[in-house]
Each structure stands twice: as C-alpha cells, then as structure tokens.
Computed example of a mutant assay.
Amino acid sequence: MRKLILIIAIMSGLLISAQIGIKTESPKAILDVNGDMNLRGKLSVLNVTNNTIPEATNDQILVSQGEGYPPIWKSLRIPDYEQNKFFLIYNNSFSDRNGVEFSFSEESSNGSTISTSLIQNANISTLNLFKKIPLLSQTFEVYSEQSKTYFQFETVVHADFLGNQSNTDQSIDYGCGIFVDNKLANMRLGNIKASSANYPFLTHNQIGMIGNLSKGNHSISVACARLKSYNTEARLGIGINVASNIDSFITQSSLRIDVYEVPQVFNTIIN
C-alpha cells in the first residue's frame, strides 16, 4: 500500500509539472488547447503588485502586459456613436518655454508681400525667416474621412526697445502661423508698440480650423516671424522674454488640438 501511494504521488508530481496538450501531441505551453474552449466557471489571474487573485467585474477583459508578465483585467468602454454626427475623437495640449527671438536683422521679406505670400496652404519652406516654436511641433492621427480639426495657440509677445521708451513711435509688426503638414492653415498678424512702460508685452491668441484631413498621421507646428520694424532696432521675443520685467513662465506658449470626426470604420482589435 505504501509503495502504491508513493508511485501515485510521484506520478501526480510529474503530471503537475508536465505540459498538457488537448488535441495536440506537442504542447507549447503548460496547457495547450488545439480547439474551442468553453469555460463554465470563474477565471482569475494573479495581481503581482499585491499578490492577490482578483476576479473580473462585469464588462472587463484580460489585457496582455507583455512577455514575462501576467495579464491584467481592464474595463472596456466603447461609446455609443450616432450616425452622421461629429464626436470629439482626439484632444491634447502642449506648452513651450523656449519660444523664438528675433534681432533687427532677422526681418522677414514676407512683410512686404503679405497678401501674396502668406496665403492658405503656403509651404513653410517658401516663407522667409519663419521660426518654429520648438515644443509645439507635434503629431496627431485622423481616423475618418469626415473631420474638423480645431486648434488654439496662445503666447506672449515681448519687445526690448533699447530703453528708449520716450519715443512711442517705435513698433514692430509680427505674424504667427499654424501649419498642418508644413502647410499654412491659419495666420494672424500683430503689432507691438513702445509706450511709457518699460519693455512692453502683449498676449497673442489665435484660433483656427481645418476640415476633412486625410486619414492617417499629420503634423502640426507653429512658426512666427518679424515682419517689419518702425523706427527701432529692438529685440523681439515670441514665447520668450527679452527683458527681466517678465520671465519664461509668463511668456510660455501653448497649443491645443481638438479633432472632431464622424466615426466610420475604426481599427480592429488585434493580438
């Protein structure tokens, strides 16, 4: 009897440690099922963070964490979409404290050809001395053929009129453009003028929209230029301070992107 119990115990250990195949003679995992599986009871997985074995709640699915890690339960939330209605599919915002600075010699030749050069879909490569604000260059994706992409750009324009504030006839024209795939989608012009206050600054805000971008990835960027100077050789900063009366926290730039789409066929879930 003792020998029989010992043999059964050894065989049980072998069975526990061996790979088990159902409808396959060469299992590739501890349990390898070659066919359909119907689970009638509960399914639990180990949570390695607290060493518990939780059960899923209603509408949760198992999500892989990659090789060597156990799967985890995740809630799957799929919104209801109405036919032919726009829904917010993508939303994000970005900030930048680097900005762009212009000396008197960095004046764009487009200042004298505004009506013919700063036109819709103008490629940024054709524009003179337009500088991109570094961290506002980003990418986003469009999933539908029917879409509206809105963007809002805000920054602070700062000028150092070389301490000659008594001459209030000094001013600088500037322009900022929002580019999608390096093509001009929105442009706003402005002017900063000397006053009795030292080192004037102003808030620049622009909102634009582009419709029905092609499906896929797109780039967005913001670029600005010094267009014309009047009676001054002052430095100009857009998104950056050029004097100590304000700092980079005050002058920082921000860009917000909202993509509204009429949902069509979305990417399928793949393994």
Rank of each mutant, 00 (worst) to 15 (best):
M1D: 05
K3V: 11
K3F: 13
L4M: 11
A9P: 02
I10K: 02
S17V: 14
S17T: 13
A18H: 06
Q19H: 10
I20Y: 05
T24Y: 10
T24C: 05
S26G: 12
I30S: 09
I30Q: 11
L31P: 09
D36Y: 02
M37P: 02
L39I: 10
R40D: 05
G41H: 10
G41F: 12
K42T: 13
S44R: 12
V45W: 14
V45T: 15
N47D: 14
V48Y: 04
T49N: 12
N50Y: 03
T52F: 01
E55H: 08
A56K: 02
N58K: 10
V63T: 13
S64L: 10
G68V: 08
I72N: 08
W73S: 10
L76G: 09
P79F: 03
P79S: 12
Y81S: 11
Y81I: 12
Q83Y: 15
N84S: 13
N84I: 09
F86H: 07
F87A: 09
Y90R: 06
D96Q: 04
D96I: 01
G99H: 00
E106C: 10
S108K: 01
I114D: 04
I119L: 14
L127R: 01
I133Q: 11
L135M: 12
L136K: 07
S137R: 14
E141G: 06
Y143D: 06
E145A: 07
Y150V: 03
F151T: 02
E154L: 03
T155I: 00
V157M: 01
A159W: 00
D160T: 06
L162A: 12
S166C: 04
D169K: 10
Y174R: 03
V180I: 15
K183M: 04
I192M: 04
I192V: 01
S195D: 11
S195E: 11
A197R: 08
N198R: 11
Y199T: 01
L202C: 04
L202M: 08
G211N: 02
G211C: 01
S214D: 10
N217K: 13
N217L: 05
H218K: 08
A223M: 09
A225V: 04
L227Q: 05
S229A: 08
Y230W: 15
Y230R: 12
I240D: 00
A243R: 14
D247E: 02
Q252E: 15
R256T: 14
R256S: 13
D258C: 03
E261G: 04
Q264E: 15
N267S: 13
